[in-house]
Design a binder for these strands. Structure first.
Lengths: 214, 214
DNA sequence: AAGGAACTGGACTGTCCAGTACTCTAGAGA
DNA sequence: TCTCTAGAGTACTGGACAGTCCAGTTCCTT
């Protein structure tokens, strides 16, 4: 007898979740049938309905589950060394890693999926925006506030600055990805967007020489 | 007999286009049936199929038709008075009008519609991005170049600056609107985003005093 | 006034799909 | 070993919808 860690039921549950996630991400909500999911999970349709009451509930569960997986990005945005000399480099690294993380095909597909179904599931979109996006922005705002307290940045409204920072970085590539079916960017392009965004951000928020000396 | 300007056929054609536009915008592509469109246009389904070969072609025609209607925004972005003293005010007015135009519910619905179906119709998304968005950005870049030539802005890459400008303005409200079903912003909020964006943009691109004196 | 083209209304086909019902099998625990 | 539950497989119901067909009507043109 193999040591199976979980019971059969829990294993099936997991298999269905994974199959449904993959199917919804790649084929969208209306494009995915419950038969597709059952087949992909190697499970009978009955079993799908034993674990999830209906298609909508399964979809909602999957989307909400993904909002819990952004801890990596939050951590990324927290850890910015407070070092005046290397500020541009630190922010540049942050920007590049941030862009790379958010422009992964999976993340973009998730974004498309939520937007496409925002009218069918308005609560899902709102929840994802606030718990996902909002948490990252709030964290980034805290980081900026810290840098401003150290005199490294000149910032009135940290949350607004965080939004502007992210907008400078993401506006171009995210739009391209949203309107074209698949993302077409290279890593080099992403790095370019990151550097250009940081340059503009710093041009706007670098303290003047007098301020830097208190 | 009334003077009908156009023949019966042309009138029906137009009625179908308008009905289909309204239906697709409010209920999405899969959510709209050909029967819905026929009923809304007060036309028989046969007639719909006489004018348009099938649902996909009708959809494509509608989306492409909208890309021709952005002349207003292009004009908006062309006409920025070259006046050093009032630059912030000029850009502020441009930003407010730009935001108001692009955050109209109709425009946002169109955006959602194209993004939601970007995998089904990748050419449509690409065409809209390039002929719609791209044209506005290129025009704005030209305007910025003109302002830079006058010494009113310090700009290396005008197209990049145009993208940054638009990103600063639109990132916040567009995201909110995309993820929540319906737009929730007031005009006052839009004006706030516009002013904040312009302030950051100018902080980054205002020439230093020496440069302003040549 | 007459002919033809366009339109109407509704029935019809074929397909897809969410969700259910039922029988039979396999596996986990007592 | 016996039993009971979860699952497999598959057929079925009910409804939606794209696209077609046809018989009868309205409009425009000449």
């Amino acid at each position: 007898m193999e040591p199976n860690e979980q019971g059969r039921s829990a294993r099936k549950h997991q298999a269905i979740l994974e199959a449904a996630t993959e199917a919804f991400l790649s084929k969208g909500y209306p494009g995915t049938s419950m038969d597709d999911i059952a087949k992909l999970a190697a499970v009978s349709k009955q079993t799908v309905y034993k674990h999830f009451t209906d298609k909508e509930q399964l979809f909602a569960e999957i989307i909400l589950a993904t909002t819990g997986r952004i801890d990596g990005v939050v951590r990324l945005v927290t850890d910015v060394p407070v070092d005046g000399a290397a500020l541009e480099e630190s922010l540049g690294r942050l920007a590049r890693e941030f862009l790379t993380a958010l422009m992964r095909p999976q993340v973009l597909q998730l974004r498309r999926l939520i937007i496409a179904n925002a009218d069918r599931f308005p609560e899902l979109g709102a929840a994802w925006y606030e718990q996902g996006f909002g948490r990252v922005l709030a964290t980034l705002a805290t980081t900026f506030q810290r840098l401003a307290d150290q005199g490294l940045l000149r910032i009135d409204d940290p949350l607004l600055a965080a939004n502007h920072f992210v907008g400078l970085l993401l506006w171009i590539p995210v739009n391209k990805a949203m309107f074209h079916g698949a993302p077409q960017h290279t890593q080099a392009e992403l790095d370019h967007y990151a550097d250009a965004g940081v340059r503009t951000f710093l041009a706007a928020h670098r303290p003047s020489v007098q301020e830097a000396r208190h």
